[in-house]
Amino acid sequence: MTSSADRNQLFHALHRPGPLVLPNAWDVASALIVESAGAKAVATTSGAVAWSLGAADGDKLDRDRAIDLVARIAKAVKIPVTADIESGFGKDAAEVGETMRAISEAGASGVNIEDGHGPALRDVQEQVDRLAAAHEAAPDLYLHARIDVYLRGIGEPEDRVRITLERAQAYVEAGASGIFVPGVTDLDTIKQLSEGIDVPLGVLAGPGAPAVGELAGAGAARISIGTAIAEAAYALTRKAAVELLTSGTYSSVEENISYGELNALFN
Results as ranks from 00 to 15, higher is better:
residue 90 G to A: 00
residue 91 K to V: 15
residue 91 K to F: 10
residue 94 A to K: 14
residue 95 E to A: 15
residue 95 E to I: 01
residue 96 V to P: 02
residue 96 V to K: 00
residue 98 E to L: 13
residue 103 I to A: 10
residue 104 S to V: 02
residue 104 S to C: 06
residue 104 S to I: 00
residue 104 S to H: 14
residue 105 E to N: 05
residue 105 E to S: 13
residue 106 A to M: 02
residue 109 S to M: 06
residue 117 H to C: 13
residue 118 G to K: 11
residue 119 P to S: 14
residue 119 P to N: 13
residue 120 A to I: 12
residue 121 L to D: 05
residue 121 L to V: 10
residue 122 R to L: 15
residue 122 R to T: 05
residue 123 D to K: 04
residue 123 D to I: 04
residue 127 Q to E: 05
residue 128 V to Q: 00
residue 130 R to V: 07
residue 130 R to G: 06
residue 132 A to E: 12
residue 132 A to L: 01
residue 133 A to R: 02
residue 133 A to G: 11
residue 134 A to N: 03
residue 135 H to A: 13
residue 136 E to S: 15
residue 138 A to D: 06
residue 139 P to G: 07
residue 139 P to N: 10
residue 141 L to V: 11
residue 142 Y to L: 15
residue 142 Y to E: 02
residue 143 L to W: 08
residue 143 L to G: 05
residue 143 L to F: 08
residue 143 L to R: 07
residue 144 H to W: 07
residue 145 A to T: 07
residue 147 I to Q: 03
residue 147 I to D: 01
residue 149 V to R: 01
residue 149 V to I: 14
residue 149 V to N: 02
residue 153 G to E: 07
residue 154 I to H: 05
residue 154 I to Q: 08
residue 155 G to A: 09
residue 157 P to S: 09
residue 158 E to C: 00
residue 158 E to A: 15
residue 160 R to H: 07
residue 163 I to M: 15
residue 164 T to N: 02
residue 165 L to P: 04
residue 166 E to P: 00
residue 166 E to D: 13
residue 166 E to W: 01
residue 166 E to S: 04
residue 166 E to Y: 00
residue 168 A to Q: 03
residue 170 A to K: 10
residue 171 Y to H: 06
residue 172 V to N: 01
residue 173 E to M: 05
residue 174 A to Q: 06
residue 174 A to D: 02
residue 175 G to S: 11
residue 175 G to L: 09
residue 176 A to K: 04
residue 177 S to D: 14
residue 178 G to P: 05
residue 179 I to Q: 06
residue 180 F to L: 05
residue 181 V to P: 03
residue 183 G to M: 08
residue 184 V to R: 03
residue 185 T to W: 06
residue 185 T to E: 09
residue 186 D to Q: 14
residue 187 L to D: 08
residue 187 L to Q: 07
residue 189 T to L: 12
residue 192 Q to L: 14
residue 194 S to W: 07
residue 195 E to G: 15
residue 196 G to N: 04
residue 197 I to V: 15
residue 198 D to K: 15
residue 199 V to D: 09
residue 199 V to C: 11
residue 200 P to Q: 07
residue 201 L to R: 10
residue 202 G to Q: 10
residue 203 V to T: 14
residue 204 L to F: 12
residue 206 G to K: 05
residue 208 G to I: 11
residue 209 A to I: 10
residue 211 A to R: 13
residue 212 V to G: 08
residue 214 E to R: 14
residue 216 A to Q: 12
residue 220 A to N: 14
residue 221 A to Q: 15
residue 222 R to Y: 09
residue 225 I to A: 08
residue 225 I to Q: 02
residue 226 G to I: 03
residue 227 T to C: 03
residue 230 A to D: 02
residue 231 E to H: 11
